[in-house]
Design a binder for these strands. Structure first.
Lengths: 245, 245
DNA sequence: CGTTGCGTTGAATAAGGTCAAATAGAGTGG
DNA sequence: CCACTCTATTTGACCTTATTCAACGCAACG
């Protein structure tokens, strides 16, 4: 296992939070430029993760958080009997690893779905510095809280929506996240397989495929393998709930 | 709405974290007695919440966390179209309100399922003090992280288990939490209705009822309305996954 | 140009949902 | 204390949805 192989020190690369286009989505969000400079020192190194490789595995010792610099990840939890469940998809600017803080061991596994890069944030140093920089402390707490809220949203989806609603909600969520990162919200490539989508949504891959086909018939989206073009946002939103209004 | 009516200052009641039997489950966990004393000052007041009353509602402004002193709560999120989903049940020692940190507004609602009492922890003061007391900072981060991990566990349940497995997992989870609080793990009263259980588990109340009946036939549990007696823990565990092993 | 993995589609089946009716308690007012 | 209400729960019959199993198509790749 070459799990920790490609680690690059940050300064050698002359790139930092201060100049990172993602800082508005990430940990330095809302900090003064002075403070951001301190956060720069926090981010010790970067790590490349090849498509299909694992950033960390459930059970691994926890030591750092990771900020996604580029690429795309899935997180998954394993049940005792071997079944697994995709619990999220993660893109640039998002923080990974918070599942490990509670027990010092990671509770889920993170796998890259395309060649990716993360910033390594040693957690003890984050705690140390966030105790000094009020804004950093706040932002870190905000991020953890949002993760909780996000998970509750997924619980709502898994607990009370039907297959079509789930898929519609999934596409709209992706769309919005691409938009927030400056990509087209209506035209994008899925990085994950039908099976991974199905696992995330609590349905089978065949059902995902059927729903895609149905949406295509209904001229809501255009699906060509992994490429998605959203044709009717309003129509999709209409499916996720507010049917009658 | 008398939402904030019964607030009692803590010192008047001469009860504090230092003397609280729940401190090993709660925020002061792992602190020195000196530090616990500082946390005592943090907890400004207590609030009683009658059965059926709301601690806070989705959309309410966020200002404090709440430590459950006694009683039983459910948390629920609402979808745009009015459906709701129970996202958790909460008992003594647990911290509520972390969903509000990210946006300054609560994302879910908390309702008492029996007469209950919470300690009010003003969040700005928690941030302030936790910046000074390293152990408190750590414990708070641990608690948030555990909440994330807990939610991932629920996602696994909702995404990949069948009705019987869900109910078995639910009963075992409750059992374990009662045990951790010194109550019988095999003999307890449900505080929630079948409908609330069903909402939490992503199944209908009739299904919950049928599964209970089936478990009873199989001599796994004894169900008398709200009273549960677990007869065969191993059998229940066998249902939640590791069928074949 | 066959192999391999991923995706689509169809038919049969099972799981759980829906609707409806019967029952059981808990609490209330007489 | 008893009859009465109200709500929660149980159970049955039927129906819908999604799963399962299987076959086939397609695209990338050696």
């Amino acid at each position: 296992m070459a799990a920790t192989a490609p680690v690059i020190t940050l300064h050698a690369l002359k790139s930092s939070c201060s100049s990172c286009s993602l800082r508005e989505l990430c940990l330095p969000m809302g900090l003064t430029s002075e403070e951001v400079e301190q956060v720069d020192h926090l981010v010790a190194a970067r790590r490349r993760v090849r498509s299909g490789a694992t950033l960390y595995r459930a059970g691994d010792a926890f030591g750092s958080l990771y900020a996604v610099r580029s690429g795309f990840f899935k997180s998954m939890v394993l049940s005792d009997d071997g079944r697994d469940q995709v619990t999220g998809f993660h893109m640039a600017g998002e923080i990974l690893g918070m599942d490990g803080i509670g027990t010092e061991k990671h509770a889920c596994s993170i796998v890259a779905l395309e060649d990716s890069e993360v910033c390594i944030i040693p957690f003890p140093r984050l705690e140390e510095i966030s105790a000094k920089i009020r804004g950093l402390q706040r932002q870190f707490h905000r991020l953890m809280s949002r993760e909780i809220v996000r998970d509750q949203g997924v619980m709502l989806l898994l607990g009370s929506m039907r297959a079509e609603e789930r898929v519609a909600a999934f596409l709209l969520n992706l769309s919005q996240r691409f938009l927030a990162r400056g990509y087209s919200p209506s035209d994008f490539n899925l990085r994950m397989t039908r099976e991974e989508i199905g696992s995330y949504l609590g349905i089978k891959l065949e059902t995902v495929s059927r729903v895609f086909s149905k949406f295509q018939e209904g001229r809501l989206v255009e699906v060509k393998q992994k490429h998605i073009r959203i044709l009717d946002v309003v129509g999709l939103k209409g499916l996720t709930g507010k049917e009658a209004c």
